[in-house]
């Protein structure tokens, strides 16, 4: 029976090892130093990645600060404009009230005059 097993195992190896040169023989990298080296490499690459990310974020923060500054200036300008327009509005309102008063006076004077002329005509 053993000879049968040997033949079968050899046949298996022929089938399973065909074109095996296309497949890498990787040593089991499980020795502690290998794992540590892999971990170290991983850590190094992570630190580098994080550093790059930090640099990008810093640049982003700088540009956002500038945007905030510009927006603040815009807001200040708008406030000033709002105040000046308010003042202008007040002045215009005042002038409007004066003109309205004058208009009323003129209408009153005109009515009195028309009334007087009407009385004179009636007296004749």
């Amino acid at each position: 029976m053993d000879q049968g097993y040997i033949t079968k195992l050899q046949d298996r190896d022929v089938i399973e090892s065909r074109f095996c040169d296309l497949f890498r023989d990787v040593p089991i990298a499980l020795r502690d130093e290998d794992i540590n080296a892999t971990k170290q490499n991983n850590l190094k690459s992570t630190v580098n990645r994080l550093r790059k990310e930090l640099k990008d974020k810093d640049a982003e923060v700088r540009s956002l600060r500038e945007v905030i500054k510009v927006k603040n200036n815009d807001s200040e300008k708008l406030n000033n404009e709002l105040i000046s327009l308010n003042i202008e509005n007040n002045l215009v309102g005042h002038k409007y009230a004066q003109l309205e008063e004058e208009h009323e006076k003129l209408v009153k004077r005109w009515l009195e005059r028309v009334h007087q002329e009407f009385d004179v005509l009636n007296a004749r």
């Binding site: 095996c20 497949f23 990787v26 089991i28 990298a29 892999t38």
Partner: peptide
């Protein structure tokens, strides 16, 4: 994709550090 030759008598994750390193 990795083409590797693995002994029949072993646990698959024993190659995990190598595999991770190649594809991460």
């Amino acid at each position: 994709s990795l083409n590797i030759r693995i002994p029949r008598d072993i646990y698959l994750p024993m190659y995990l550090p190598f595999m991770k390193n190649q594809v991460k």
